[in-house]
Design a protein around this nucleic acid. Structure first.
Lengths: 140, 140
DNA sequence: TGTTGTTTTGTTATTATTATAAATAAGCAG
DNA sequence: CTGCTTATTTATAATAATAACAAAACAACA
């Protein structure tokens, strides 16, 4: 939830492009890529450039307002929810789902070894419930 | 530890290129990229092609003999240890360290929701002990 | 309303990876 | 050991995502 006052706080200018990108991200649980966002907006904002989308995502990710997801090789996705949680990639349909993670005591051993952990990103791979259900249906 | 009999089992031909790539990977805890492996071998095997390195890594990863690490945006690294474990990326020096992970009861909630989890890849980001130590030294 | 510095845009460059097709060579049969 | 078959390697070109750049546009403040 990136509010307009929050953007001001970060010293960012409120451009129509940024507001449009935020609108796409707001409450979005589909984890779009830069390209996805660009395509969604291009018809409404024909002058929008892909570079602007990248810039905006870069700035917001740097400010901790959204997170980069590196669950797929060679392609980044973005999550407007900056709270720590995991992600699941379905190898059938390619969907990326949010995964709630419990208390992260898993980090403790790292800290005792002298690591300074700033971020924890658990990724899961497999088959999502929708695809399992669909397959089950077609096998009967 | 990818043995020669294991390669045979997989129906793969034992080419000098593959053996050389395996030699670089064997016991390697530095998590090289395809390019890293290529550079290490190029002087010894001048005819080696980067495509071959990619092919070999692809085949071995597909067979579950090594794992792809997607901890960095837009660049893959490889780990000859196929056992489940996590990785830590240092934002100062870029090193990727192995992280032992305990029993993965974290997956249970996913399974009850109908997910079929084939792989779990926990990534950690921050500053490694070497860089923290170095900084501490230079600040005194 | 003018000024300043940020942002946007179009374009080009870079980087990692993948596709392709011809040449090579591993492994097996005889 | 020799030839055959097929997987593999190689060089090259293509692709795809992202980053760099510089000029034009415009948000924010005085």
């Amino acid at each position: 939830m990136i509010s307009i006052p929050r953007l001001r706080e970060l010293g960012l200018k409120l451009t129509p492009q940024r507001l449009a990108i935020l609108e796409v991200l707001e409450g979005n649980t589909e984890h779009p890529s830069a390209e996805d966002i660009y395509k969604q907006l291009k018809s409404r904002y024909p002058s929008l450039s892909l570079t602007t989308v990248y810039n905006t995502l870069e700035v917001l990710a740097g400010a901790g307002e959204l997170q980069e997801i590196r669950i797929r090789a060679n392609k980044r996705h973005f999550d407007p929810n900056p709270a720590p949680h995991g992600h699941f990639l379905c190898r059938i349909c390619g969907a990326i789902d949010d995964v709630e993670t419990g208390p992260l005591e898993i980090q403790a051993p790292l800290q005792t070894k002298g690591y300074f952990v700033e971020k924890y990103a658990p990724y899961f791979y497999g088959i999502c419930p929708r695809c399992r259900e669909r397959d089950r249906g077609s096998n009967q």
